[in-house]
């Protein structure tokens, strides 16, 4: 589904990603871990098309297509979804209106008719129930005044409504209490599908207890320094990242 080849990215002349290689097969779940500032969010922004970065080398193929040829919206329509580390507030725009605009944009791209208002509402309400979210959130402005945990849950609601094929979750588990973590993890698991791939950026093994990854990668100083199976996350939990620096030094 996604193939990242020798990706180099810099901001203001400072190199942040220094040659990333990553291959994510359809239906797979990959976890990316790594110290603060190692470039995890940057990678997710590059994949979703945020501006302000210089891509100096490398390429990314999404279902065989050059991702960098696609605009932000085109990527979204084609199934790329980023659950933000810091979800953005959109004052004055109700959650339900926002969801409807987003879904209709995607459906239009897929050549589908807009969902009828009643069908849409009942579909969204069903998903909210699964995520244990109060319906009143539908009529509040997008993320405005939401608590940290509510924002994260709202990201997962959007993901379940939009049903993307490549889900990038940037620290969705940070800031969630134990119960919320479980609800969100269940939400993600419900979406697991042979046709859908996930990239989970996280600092904690805890999330991976709930969502079993197929692969774990360690990103440090802008490079994937180690890849392995789920056991790698356990190792990291025990040892921390000190060995990464030792390894890079040697």
């Amino acid at each position: 589904m996604l193939k990242v080849e020798n990706l180099h990215v810099s901001v203001d002349g400072k190199e942040i990603l220094k040659g990333i290689n990553l291959e994510i097969g359809t239906g797979e779940v990959h976890a990316i871990m790594g110290p603060n500032g190692s470039g995890k969010s940057t990678l997710s922004y590059i994949l979703s098309g945020r501006e302000g970065y210089d891509i100096t080398e490398g390429r990314v193929l999404f279902n065989g297509q050059d991702l960098f040829e696609m605009s932000v919206e085109e990527r979204a329509w084609a199934g790329v979804f980023l659950a933000f580390q810091y979800p953005v507030e959109v004052p004055g725009v109700s959650n339900i209106y926002f969801l409807k605009a987003a879904l209709n944009g995607i459906r239009k791209f897929q050549g589908l008719a807009e969902l009828d208002a009643m069908d849409f509402i009942s579909m969204v309400k069903g998903k909210m129930k699964d995520l244990d979210m109060d319906e009143k959130f539908l009529y509040r402005a997008v993320n405005e005044g939401f608590s940290g945990g509510e924002k994260k849950r709202n990201e997962i609601l959007q993901m379940s409504v939009l049903e993307p094929t490549l889900c990038l979750l940037d620290e969705t588990d940070s800031g969630l209490d134990i119960d919320a973590l479980q609800v969100v993890a269940e939400g993600v698991n419900r979406l697991r599908d042979p046709k859908r791939s996930f990239v989970l950026i996280t600092h904690y093994q805890r999330l991976l207890d709930y969502i079993k990854p197929d692969y774990v990668h360690v990103l440090a100083h802008g490079k994937v320094v180690k890849s392995g199976g789920p056991e790698l996350a356990l190792e990291l939990e025990e040892q921390g990242y000190a060995w990464v620096d030792e390894k890079l030094a040697s």
Binding site: S48, R50, V72, F81, V88, A102, F109
Partner: peptide
Amino acid sequence: SEDQLFYCMQRGIS
């Protein structure tokens, strides 16, 4: 903000 625009566009809204 640019963040708001990016957020909306990432959701498929032009």
